[in-house]
Structure formats: C-alpha cells, structure tokens
Simulated scan of single mutants.
Amino acid sequence: MPINSDFRGRVAEGAVGALLIIKAGAADMSCVVAAAATDKLLGTSDELDHVAGEMVDQAVGPVPKVRLGGVVAAGDALTSNAAGKAIATTTTGNRIIGFAEIAGVADDVITYLYAPGVV
C-alpha cells in the first residue's frame, strides 16, 4: 500500500532549524541538516526548530517550503549550502530537492516543486 502523505517523520540527530534542507542521519529514519550540495538530500524540515531526539516532519511534496541562502529565480534547481538553506545550482553532480516556484533572496521562505535528483 502506498504512503499518501506530504510528510515523513524522522528523529533529529542534532539541532534542525525550521524549513531547512535535511539529509539522512546515521540511524534509520533520522535526519540532520544538510551541509553541502553533494549531500544525499531528502527534502525540508517543518516550520519548527527541533533539538536532538525530537520528531521532525520531513516535507516530501508536492509544494513544500524552504528557507533561501541566496538569490534564486523561479524555476532554478535548488540544492543546499553549508547551513542547509536552499541555493540555485547548475553544477553537474549536485543533488537537488526540486525547483523554485517563485523568486527570492537570502532568508526568504519560498515554495518549491519537490523533485529530488541530481543535476
């Protein structure tokens, strides 16, 4: 039976801020904040800040939100900077969480089309 939900529950292995890009932690169904464009990106955290051991809702679609780490244009492929914020990328080999639905600048919160993959 398929899972029909826009969120997956994961346990924070450390501090996970609101609307940041996350990657898998060391334990099954855990997460940490992504720190590089080449990390295996899962999606974004929910709208709350979390400490280690708390449950984090991982947004998996179809149109979640993310906090930006720089200037982004609508349609840009989005990857993670060192702080887990979304930045635009065209670099081959970078992993992405999807595509910006609207434009924004650093620390704006925007919606994006969830489409994980590799550039």
Score class of each variant (00 low, 15 high):
2 P>L: 08
2 P>Y: 15
5 S>K: 15
7 F>V: 10
7 F>C: 04
9 G>C: 05
9 G>A: 13
9 G>D: 07
11 V>P: 00
11 V>W: 00
11 V>H: 02
11 V>E: 08
13 E>L: 02
14 G>A: 15
15 A>T: 09
16 V>S: 07
19 L>W: 04
19 L>C: 06
21 I>C: 00
21 I>S: 07
22 I>E: 03
22 I>V: 12
22 I>C: 10
23 K>L: 03
24 A>Q: 14
25 G>H: 10
26 A>L: 12
27 A>Y: 05
28 D>Y: 09
29 M>W: 14
29 M>K: 13
30 S>T: 13
30 S>G: 03
30 S>I: 08
31 C>S: 15
33 V>C: 13
33 V>T: 10
33 V>I: 09
34 A>G: 10
35 A>N: 13
35 A>M: 07
36 A>H: 14
36 A>C: 01
37 A>T: 11
37 A>S: 13
39 D>I: 10
40 K>I: 06
41 L>I: 04
41 L>F: 07
43 G>Y: 15
43 G>H: 12
45 S>V: 04
46 D>L: 07
48 L>H: 15
49 D>S: 14
49 D>N: 12
50 H>W: 11
52 A>S: 13
52 A>G: 10
54 E>M: 11
55 M>F: 10
56 V>M: 08
56 V>C: 06
56 V>D: 02
58 Q>T: 10
58 Q>A: 10
61 G>I: 04
62 P>V: 09
63 V>M: 12
63 V>I: 11
63 V>L: 14
64 P>N: 01
65 K>C: 04
66 V>D: 00
68 L>D: 07
68 L>S: 02
68 L>P: 08
68 L>E: 03
70 G>F: 02
71 V>Y: 06
74 A>T: 12
74 A>H: 03
75 G>H: 07
75 G>D: 09
76 D>C: 03
76 D>N: 14
80 S>N: 05
82 A>P: 03
84 G>H: 06
85 K>S: 02
85 K>D: 11
86 A>G: 12
87 I>Q: 11
88 A>E: 14
88 A>P: 09
89 T>W: 03
89 T>F: 09
89 T>C: 03
92 T>C: 00
92 T>E: 14
93 G>M: 09
93 G>E: 03
94 N>S: 15
94 N>P: 05
94 N>M: 09
95 R>T: 15
96 I>C: 11
96 I>W: 01
97 I>K: 00
99 F>T: 14
99 F>W: 03
100 A>Y: 01
100 A>P: 05
100 A>M: 11
100 A>V: 00
101 E>M: 10
101 E>F: 05
102 I>A: 15
102 I>Q: 13
103 A>H: 02
103 A>S: 14
104 G>M: 09
104 G>Q: 04
107 D>T: 14
108 D>W: 06
108 D>V: 05
109 V>C: 10
109 V>K: 12
110 I>M: 00
110 I>L: 00
110 I>C: 05
110 I>K: 01
113 L>K: 03
114 Y>V: 08
114 Y>E: 14
116 P>V: 02
118 V>Q: 06
119 V>R: 14
119 V>A: 11
